[in-house]
């Protein structure tokens, strides 16, 4: 990870935790009690939660607060503050890590776009790996990933002939090319239309986000997505304490609960602070171009104006903000 510079400023705090819990998520009881004392949550709620994770690993207070939490767009600033604090406390309790969760707002005059050079992609999957680490995906072998790299035969564009599980000794394999697919951040997103509770929407900077605390887990958005970009937490994802990325965003890479849908969010926790998405940073061939579509001098606008580009399944009219191009 040459360019992966998470500031692990919390490492010293985490240290005793990660050694104690030995990289597992289930926090032993004594540890939990000590934590609760530290948090100053005592009394009936405290003892209940300390004896068993009766409220999904939360204190009664946090469980109630979480249950009655409003949808993100409707929350007042103070409610958001409370929600962020709950997220941080829950991460401490469940994962044993001090995370920082913020809700950096979108920048004015910015709509994000992505372009990927198909003739440069060599199928290394470095982007996939960087994404998993950046976005706090579960680390058990069965955890999901936002980016799928499809291997296709030369002369083929039929996705049914694609293989996303390729694992040869070396890539690129002669006669094959590679097509990474992730959320296209459609300008007319069918997933947003599908959601019955408005748990997913498009932010002003064009990122389609999910409120993991509002999603009811009906998975209708997964049915509606033409890019298979949405993934469901079939069980509680687990992350060893030392692998948690502590820089999180409410709509982005904060640890997700079980039973909700998640998706690529253009690394909202990074891009809203001006940084490149983790996949773009990790790509060893420079195939990924990310930037502001509203800036006529941006690199992405140069690509769109000067390169042969295409959008995946553009015939569906979802207007992806993710383009593929060739040299």
């Amino acid at each position: 990870m040459v360019w992966n510079n998470h500031e692990n400023s919390n490492m010293s705090d985490q240290h005793d935790v990660s050694t104690q819990s030995a990289g597992t998520v289930t926090v032993p009881d004594p540890h939990r009690r000590r934590l609760l004392k530290q948090l100053g949550i005592a009394g009936a709620a405290g003892t209940t939660a300390a004896s068993a994770p009766a409220w999904g690993g939360s204190t009664l207070l946090d469980a109630l607060g979480g249950f009655f939490q409003d949808q993100y767009q409707r929350m007042s600033p103070s409610e958001i503050e409370a929600a962020l604090a709950r997220i941080e406390r829950k991460a401490k309790r469940d994962l044993g890590v001090d995370i920082h969760c913020d809700n950096t707002p979108p920048q004015a005059g910015v709509v994000f776009g992505y372009a990927l050079n198909v003739s440069r992609c060599r199928g290394y999957r470095d982007c996939v790996q960087a994404c998993i680490q950046e976005n706090n995906h579960g680390r058990d072998p069965s955890s999901t990933a936002y980016i799928r790299v499809l291997e296709l035969d030369h002369g083929q564009m039929n996705l049914e002939q694609a293989d996303q599980y390729y694992d040869p000794e070396t890539v690129p394999v002669p006669g094959k090319y590679y097509l990474p697919v992730q959320c296209m951040q459609c300008a007319d997103p069918p997933c947003v239309k599908a959601c019955p509770v408005e748990a997913t929407w498009m932010e002003p900077d064009g990122i389609v986000v999910v409120d993991y605390d509002w999603c009811i887990g009906c998975r209708y958005c997964m049915t509606a997505c033409p890019y298979w970009a949405r993934h469901f937490n079939w069980k509680q994802p687990t992350i060893p304490a030392d692998q948690v990325n502590p820089d999180t965003h409410y709509l982005g890479n904060r640890p997700r609960p079980v039973g909700v849908v998640e998706k690529c969010h253009f690394c909202i926790q990074r891009t809203r602070k001006g940084r490149l998405p983790a996949c773009a940073e990790a790509c060893p061939t420079g195939a990924r171009v990310f930037g502001n579509l509203l800036d006529p001098h941006s690199e992405i606008r140069y690509v769109l104006a000067n390169k042969p580009v295409f959008q995946l399944k553009s015939e569906l009219g979802t207007e992806p903000k993710f383009w593929y191009f060739t040299d």
Partner: peptide, 17 residues
């Protein structure tokens, strides 16, 4: 020329499947 190399591991499927 950029040399071929071993790719990162392929994606997993849901646990239990």
């Amino acid at each position: 020329a950029i040399q071929p190399r071993k790719p990162q591991p392929p994606p997993a499927v849901r646990s239990g499947l």
